[in-house]
Design a protein around this nucleic acid. Sequence first.
DNA 1: CTGAAAGCGCTTACAG
DNA 2: CTGAAAGCGCTTACAG
Lengths: 341, 341
Amino acid sequence: MARRPASASATILDIARELGVSAMTVSRALRGRPEVQPRTRERVHQVAQRLGYRPHRWARSLVSRRSWIIGIVIPDISHGYFAEITGGVEPVIEAAGYDLLLCHSRRDPERERQEMNMLLESRVDGLIVASEQPDPEFFRALLARRTPLVLVDRYFPGLRLPSVRVDDVAVGRLATQYLLRLGHRRIAHLHGPALSPSELRLRGYRQAMRQRRIAVPTAWVIGGAFDIASGAQAMKQLLRLRPRPTAVFAANDPMAFGAIQACREADIAVPREISIVGAGNIEGDHHPNPYLTTMDWPRMELGQQAGQLLLKLIAQPERALADIIYRPALLERQSTAPPLM
Amino acid sequence: MARRPASASATILDIARELGVSAMTVSRALRGRPEVQPRTRERVHQVAQRLGYRPHRWARSLVSRRSWIIGIVIPDISHGYFAEITGGVEPVIEAAGYDLLLCHSRRDPERERQEMNMLLESRVDGLIVASEQPDPEFFRALLARRTPLVLVDRYFPGLRLPSVRVDDVAVGRLATQYLLRLGHRRIAHLHGPALSPSELRLRGYRQAMRQRRIAVPTAWVIGGAFDIASGAQAMKQLLRLRPRPTAVFAANDPMAFGAIQACREADIAVPREISIVGAGNIEGDHHPNPYLTTMDWPRMELGQQAGQLLLKLIAQPERALADIIYRPALLERQSTAPPLM
DNA sequence: CTGAAAGCGCTTACAG
DNA sequence: CTGAAAGCGCTTACAG
């Protein structure tokens, strides 16, 4: 009777012994299977309640070969953009009976791989990843495991992994075309890290400039890390150029915030002296001054679609699924204006 | 040979069979136990690598009776305050070999209980919780399970659960005393939800007012939900009062942001016409205009201490642990000034 | 409607 | 240094 320590939780067998039935009957009753007599089921639940019984999730998943867990790996939990995507995934997969295991890589590719390995060792039933891997090697190796996996926000050209994202080339092109329409010519670009969104937004920027036959000097494209600090840093460099750019397309909103901050510190008026466009629309309720003009697309929906795609993939692992690519839209606010004459 | 489907992962037995050794030897080699011959170990690792072997975390924890997982439940992942606390917990428990399972209640007590139950069924080795339960019943029932648990940011008077938090009475008292020192008398309070931080900050506010023999009319204390929207809503009510309060202590920073927003919309200058103090110092890099005067305490350290307390509790479950209570400090910035004469 | 048997993938505890 | 046995808590698959 007292072989286990007092602190150990009750098992299905404890309940079975108390009632003089088999473990199977208890198991069935607890899962609400119809084959159990209503009276038996009632008694099982009563004893379970009294003993504070909790099913052992891992014992269950070990034998049923399903963990009912979806893993999600994002770069940063406190980043509004990824929080919104996660907020979209959650209800979709929870409605299907899964729990979400949320991990963040803190923008460290090595840590991301560790988290992914942890999730694989946890035998998650599926994965949603906004990867920070600069190259696709890790994911290529993963393909052999056949763990259902959906990429979100980013993707790897050439890898057969379904992805849900925005059309990043369009993000760069539309932002730049808008600045051109305002009359700007000296348009710089704050480039992000070596991930598909940065690379494609840069490509869109270059496309728009080329269409207007504007040559882009090397100094107009400055790299950053998708965060406020590097945006400010990059902007400081741009402000030293002569002639100075009159407009900047920043690869994402945090970098745009940093850019505005740098301008403020240098006493350069936004948008009067310099226009700034971001991407991602993540300000939420904290509008900086001036409100940022930015590229917008539905983050919550991105997460929902990623969740649904993953559920399909879990149901039919061999099915070929098309990428889902959202169209971005310009959100014109107060950080942009025509150039000074 | 081909009894399992092709997609199933390799097991310890697959490796053992390939090498003609026992599963035990493989298990020991994989865990880096010293009893294994270096050559055997090497071969085990090679085969494991080739088969893409990943240990099955739950099979392992089922038998070793440790999950090596710490669960953390916070109200909101995208809230900077809780993100910082989580950021403090993580390195501490990871250094001890645990992984963090991060859950958020979305400020819904019912959902919080579901998440907690999920974590208990996952047999986490310990729990850190910033609870949204309005009453302690759920946690009282939990005590019998003896799962090591540390409360963070909040606590339940009367329950023997260790907690790591700020001295919330001091938060309210110091903020209010500061406004009094500036010369304010009509000081209102934006109260939060029915959780220990709100209740205690309110108590501190009342203490400070009583010390100065200032009666607090009912209309000066308005309830909110710790978020921007309810802060703005509450502020609108305050602005209708005659005579109008000249200062406001908001129970947390989001409510203070909302209050500033409401003032801006009503064309009332902060801090010239009305002073506003928040609590929590969560602005990060998004400083609203004007920068918020607020109460500050170390969030990251709060998380670290919670992690360390939990590790102690896991090592010695019966040990009685004292609460850790941080002292808050005033962070004087630009949203406060003496009242107009 | 109920149960005995087998086993999920691993480790503990013991024997050699 | 290596292994056979037993078992963690549960469910699957079969038999009655």
